[in-house]
Design a protein around this nucleic acid. Sequence first.
DNA 1: CGTATGTTTGAACTCCCTCAACTAGTGTGG
DNA 2: CCACACTAGTTGAGGGAGTTCAAACATACG
Lengths: 272, 272
Amino acid sequence: MLTSTAAQSALAADSAASPGPAVSSPPQQRSRRATPRAAGRTGTRSAARCSSCAMRQLCMPQGLAPDELSKLETLICSARSVHRGDTLYRSGDSFDNIYAVRSGSMKTVMAHRDGREQVTGLRLAGEALGLDGISDDRHACSALALEDSTVCIVPYTALKSLCREIGSMQERLHKLLGEQIVREAAQMMVLGSLSADERVAAFLLDVSERNAQRGYSWAEFNLRMTREDMGSYLGMTLETVSRTLSRFQKRGLIDTQGKHIRIVDLDGLRQV
Amino acid sequence: MLTSTAAQSALAADSAASPGPAVSSPPQQRSRRATPRAAGRTGTRSAARCSSCAMRQLCMPQGLAPDELSKLETLICSARSVHRGDTLYRSGDSFDNIYAVRSGSMKTVMAHRDGREQVTGLRLAGEALGLDGISDDRHACSALALEDSTVCIVPYTALKSLCREIGSMQERLHKLLGEQIVREAAQMMVLGSLSADERVAAFLLDVSERNAQRGYSWAEFNLRMTREDMGSYLGMTLETVSRTLSRFQKRGLIDTQGKHIRIVDLDGLRQV
DNA sequence: CGTATGTTTGAACTCCCTCAACTAGTGTGG
DNA sequence: CCACACTAGTTGAGGGAGTTCAAACATACG
């Protein structure tokens, strides 16, 4: 149920361009340090345009006509890589860009004044990021890479102009904003009303569905978050997350080893 | 800390037009049934334009030049009254309008499939409502009046056009959407990381601040929500809300009788 | 003015947290 | 290459914050 309407942002309008029926889990970097590490801790910028093949399956272009898409591409498309654990932006940073996760995954966290942190979001490839900065020109959250990732950079000011020119572009941005509003409201409901078991189940189903809608397997995936991240996102301790997953495994609902999760009994998971 | 940036939406650009230093609590309808009840359970539509005096202190016009404001006014301004307990829209209703609470207050609720409901938002006069419908042309939440209230109706399609004509209008809508995203993220943090005491304190401070920014007293207000609504919004039971308020009163932080709340020790409340 | 709805408070219970110990990976440096 | 440290995950035992159940009280709505 959780955010069932939200994940469509990851799908291309042109379904034929989807990444195909990848039955197994997404292409994980088995050897995590395989890619030569670029200089600098903050990741690198690439002047190269996002190739249209990459763009089509990302969140922004959905519903755009080809000529509009090309306008978007001239606008957007510098990319940036962010290494695992590094921040894409920090709470308080000036807001200049919206991002789309091109590969990898990220989390957003919000800090209380006393230092406590709460994970407020998980972004998989194809999902939008950075919308928390619109309201007052500073980011309200920080965004960290859960694994080595790349993002497309969309300059907000230019995007705004484009939205005034192209109706479908405006429509797309509004949907993106609206989706995040609904997703967050659904998460408030998870945090406010569900038991620990229900929260974990809802989370797994949410990730599963988002994976499926990006053309990957709904049944099997690697969650790059730690138990602590999951706990923070779900409003519980890492121990309770771990115990819950173990119990789900004993009940035959899932099969986990570490970060790799396989959903065995989808309906069972839905029923709590 | 909670959503400190959000409430500015209620302020008019022209500060001289603010409702003035109302030291006491907002003008509540003491005799609640004083206004003759119009026919029909769903409230009435009024063809009358929102007078500019009313509009200026509402959320939409902030940051608009006079001529742009008048364009907005020709667009918007049918109003509707919603009686206490009645719904302005329901989850699943087709999304046609955005609303601005003109008087009174409303709550938004989201339902789980099994029937459990979660209060996902509280809207005071001057705040925007209905943004949960943008993402898929159906409302994801329901909106109910906490007291007899009136709202301005802003047709979304027309608003979109206007946003393409007028940059400041686009800006305003984006801010509105961005503010809700940040507000909800902050509430996720409340639900996920704070203790019961902290949640109640954060809530009172949030309402206090929003009241203040609308020109009313930060120290004293009527919360039209029930303890159950508060509990739902804060992820706890009505009994715990009640106990917490009682304890705050014993500690000299607040003074409550029923729905009327007076903040005695603002700093104390901030320190938990 | 009476009844339904909302609020307060108490007492027992329980779900989840806290603290702790142990295991298994992963990266580092000798 | 192994030993080491370090981070991440699992599992257990005990305790506590908040829930549940219940009953009395207050408020306000029709």
